[in-house]
Design a protein around this nucleic acid. Structure first.
Length: 425
RNA sequence: GGAGGGUUGGCUGAGUGGUUGAAAGCACCGGUCUUGAAAACCGGCAUGGGUUCACGCCCAUCCAGGGUUCGAAUCCCUGACCCUCCGCCA
């Protein structure tokens, strides 16, 4: 959520920033509602003050044993006017609130202009795409040949967009998770955390998935209103919801491995082959809760932590900064890491690192006590995949494939696989 | 599934219809004292909003939503969450 004061006082400027990301702020409607709100609020508060005064007078009169009937009768009219005013005010406030919840974050000035992913800006590359003396296969063919990846069985068990791994390939995925968690906890200073995979609607509102993106989520039927998490960002960031943190506690850095569940509504026909886009996938996620003044520096650092995983796995990748039009709803700035996939001859997203500034914090009421002011102030939140595990598995298969269809194991993973150096059928 | 208890400020915790936005303690901030610190003592200290050049004044908020009442943290109803015991269970 944006700062309501800013929204009230400088709607035109805000509209300009939001237009960069393709969001048209209805300034006139906002101004109309605002004006109405203000007028109704003043009126309501005056009536409330009057009611409070009268009630006090009646109390005092009663204490003295005077007749309060005339005073009570005089209140009747006031009461009905107050009720009407309160009703109208709360309707306006609800409308404003609903409007505010659907306004995305402001893009940072350093975010390039652009409409969609084609306008994202590559800012650096690492590693060389491997050269093969044979025609490289994609992970689907490789997995099938190994007999360790079975999409037909997955479809029978669940449906499309699910995958099934067995044997060394399944173990490789587990090894990747272990490796990433160890790296981030031991070398990057994150605290490992285990979190709920089902969350309530408040948590999803806090991080910005609701109310606007309900169709992307799996909602459980049953007496409780639970949703499957689309990313660990939701439970982990919500660790600080409704809290006031001590200054010394910051920054808070958490890493969690969780499965992620996404309905992929609206992506019909996109990435239908293989395990690139699934209803269920594993991800290791880094989350940082920081002081506002250091969030931009932290974004660079966090991105570096994600890059480190790819470097240690020796997977070629590039870093792109998302253009304003491609930014996620809550993000002020996002770096995507894209790994080279020989099966597609393309760089594909494998991590997304974002600074949400105070946008999520305001929805979450996640604050810290600034020693300067002594007042509770909003924190800044950031997160980044470190990495999307399923896609990392795909990248390893495709980049480390041999002519005979076996898969080499990156050096750093072998200790997690009992020393295994290659996966063969 | 059955029975009961609870939700109050940063924290602990009093408060069962009228100066209670809320006692007390802790924490925190300032001061006195001290060579310095601690202790002791004195003072300050909720959040959001409206209005004002400003001092200030006003409104809302004691889990949420309804209700009773001239007046609700306090009474009634519904819901959420937490806890305890019993049953079942990984």
């Amino acid at each position: 959520m944006l700062d309501p004061k800013l929204l009230r006082n400088e709607p035109e400027e805000i509209a300009v920033h939001l237009r960069r990301r393709g969001f048209e702020l209805d300034v006139e409607r906002l101004a109309r509602l605002e004006q109405e709100r203000k007028q109704l609020q003043v009126e309501t508060q005056q009536l409330q003050a009057e009611r409070n005064r009268s009630a006090k007078v009646i109390g005092q009169a009663k204490a003295k044993g005077e007749d309060i009937q005339p005073l009570v009768q005089a209140m009747a009219d006031l009461k009905s006017r107050l009720e009407a005013a309160e009703g109208r005010l709360s309707r306006i406030q609800e409308e404003l609130e609903a409007l505010a919840l659907e306004i995305p974050n402001l893009p940072h000035p350093s975010v390039p202009d652009g409409n969609d992913e084609r306008d994202n800006l590559e800012i650096r590359r690492w590693g060389e795409p491997p050269r093969f003396s044979f025609t490289p296969r994609d992970h689907v063919d490789l997995g099938a040949a190994l007999g360790q990846m079975d999409f037909e069985a997955a479809a029978r068990i669940a449906g499309s967009r699910f995958s099934l791994l067995t044997g060394p390939l399944a173990r490789l995925q587990r090894a990747l998770i272990q490796f990433m968690l160890d790296l981030h906890t031991e070398e990057h200073g994150y605290t490992e955390s285990y979190v709920p995979y089902l969350v309530n609607a408040d948590s999803l509102r806090g991080t910005g998935q609701l109310p606007k993106f309900e169709e992307d989520l799996f909602k459980l039927a049953g007496e409780h209103e639970y949703y499957l998490i689309p990313t660990a960002e939701v439970p982990v960031t919500n660790m600080v919801r409704d809290r006031i943190l001590d200054a010394e506690a910051l920054p808070l850095c958490y890493v969690a491995h969780t499965p992620c569940f996404r309905s992929e509504a609206g992506s019909y026909g996109k990435d239908t082959r293989g395990m690139i886009r699934q209803h269920q996938f594993e991800k290791v996620e880094m989350v940082q809760i920081v002081r506002p003044e250091e969030s931009w520096e932290r974004l660079e650092q966090l991105t570096g932590h994600a890059e480190r995983v790819l470097q240690m796995l020796e997977l070629p990748y590039r870093v792109v900064v998302l253009c304003a039009g491609d930014l996620g709803f809550s993000a002020a700035k996002t770096y995507d890491l894209e790994v080279w996939l020989p099966g597609q001859q393309k760089y594909r997203e494998i991590s997304s690192c974002s600074n949400f500034t105070d946008f999520q914090a305001r929805r979450l009421k996640a604050r810290w006590r600034d020693p300067e002011s002594g007042k509770p102030e909003l924190v800044h939140t950031l997160n980044g995949s470190g990495l999307a595990v399923g896609r990392t598995l795909v990248a390893i298969m495709e980049n480390y494939q041999q002519e005979d269809g076996s898969i080499g194991i990156p050096e750093v993973l072998r200790r997690y696989l009992g020393g295994l150096e290659r996966i063969a059928s």
